Amino acid sequence: MKNKITILITALLIFGCRGPVKEENTNTASASTLPIGHEKYTVNTKQSLVVWKGSNLMGSNTHMGYIYLSKGELIIENGQLIGGSAEVDMNTIEDEKHGRDNDLVKHLKDSDFFDVKKFPTSTIVLTNNAATTGDKRNVTGNLTIKGITQPVTFSAKTEVTKGVFKLNGRLAIDRTKWDIRYKSGKFYDLLADQTISDSIEFHINIVARNKELNL
């Protein structure tokens, strides 16, 4: 089974925001002040979902499953996502049937892959958001897995309607950049059908709500 196991990874957004402050000295600007025109949105962890997909090198054996956000906060300006961060609970890794207590999931959680006991969460911090074509955006950020942080970029469709923000995007990463080397062709001399692809895809669906509107 380990010959066919796939990797998952994830990521997606907890967007660190700043909170309101009391003004005690008019000559001192507080770092926690949210700039005028910026709005704080809280990620709805029950409505948000990340779907992961991995395969062997030849693509003949593919696995997919799910993983969930534990918390997240976004900053929106004029209807556009401009910052924030999100945290993923690595203990929520599931297979395509939403199973968690099986050999596939247990292997993904062990030290061959995500070493979840040692690194129970992964995070992504947004650094930029630029328009491409139509309603598509190029979202860039820093993704941390197993204590290793690397820059990432992914394409996403975003929208804000009546205080509800939605993001639908696809992120692909090279897992070896986060020291996930199990059966990677870069580090092991294996037959093609035993080699696991270094590329992992995940499809991100995020729903967040404006904190001020109490939706």
Rank of each mutant, 00 (worst) to 15 (best):
D174V: 08
L191I: 11
K162H: 13
D174G: 07
Q194T: 10
K177Y: 06
L167P: 09
N168E: 13
I200T: 03
K177T: 01
D193I: 14
Q194L: 12
V164T: 05
R175N: 08
S197F: 05
I200P: 03
R181Y: 02
E201R: 04
G185A: 15
W178K: 05
K177L: 04
Q194P: 04
D198R: 12
K177W: 08
Q194E: 13
W178I: 00
F202T: 09
K183H: 07
V164Y: 06
L191C: 07
W178S: 09
D198I: 02
I200E: 02
I200D: 02
Q194K: 04
V164F: 02
N168Y: 12
G185C: 12
F202P: 00
W178F: 01
L167R: 03
T195I: 11
D174Q: 14
V164H: 11
Y188P: 05
T176K: 01
K166Y: 10
R175H: 04
K186G: 07
L167M: 12
R181V: 05
F187D: 12
I196D: 03
D193W: 15
L171Y: 01
S197M: 12
L171E: 04
S199H: 10
R181K: 15
A192N: 14
Y182D: 04
F202E: 01
I180Q: 02
D193T: 15
W178M: 04
R181F: 07
G163S: 14
A192G: 12
G185Y: 14
L167N: 03
Q194D: 10
F187L: 09
S197A: 15
I200W: 00
D198G: 14
I173C: 01
I196W: 02
A172E: 13
Y188R: 10
S197R: 06
D174P: 06
I173D: 00
G163F: 03
K162C: 01
D179L: 08
K166A: 06
H203Q: 09
D174K: 09
Q194A: 07
R181H: 14
G169V: 06
D179I: 00
D193P: 07
D189G: 09
A192S: 12
L191T: 07
S184M: 02
Y182Q: 05
K166R: 05
W178Q: 04
R170T: 15
L171W: 07
A172I: 14
L191W: 14
V164D: 06
G169E: 03
F202I: 13
D193N: 06
D189Y: 10
S184L: 00
S199E: 13
W178P: 00
N168S: 15
S197I: 00
D174F: 03
V164S: 04
D179F: 07
L171S: 08
G185N: 09
T176R: 02
L191A: 09
S199A: 12
A192H: 14
R170N: 12
I196M: 15
R170W: 02
A172V: 15
S199F: 11
K166W: 04
W178Y: 04
R170I: 15
Q194G: 10
I180M: 07
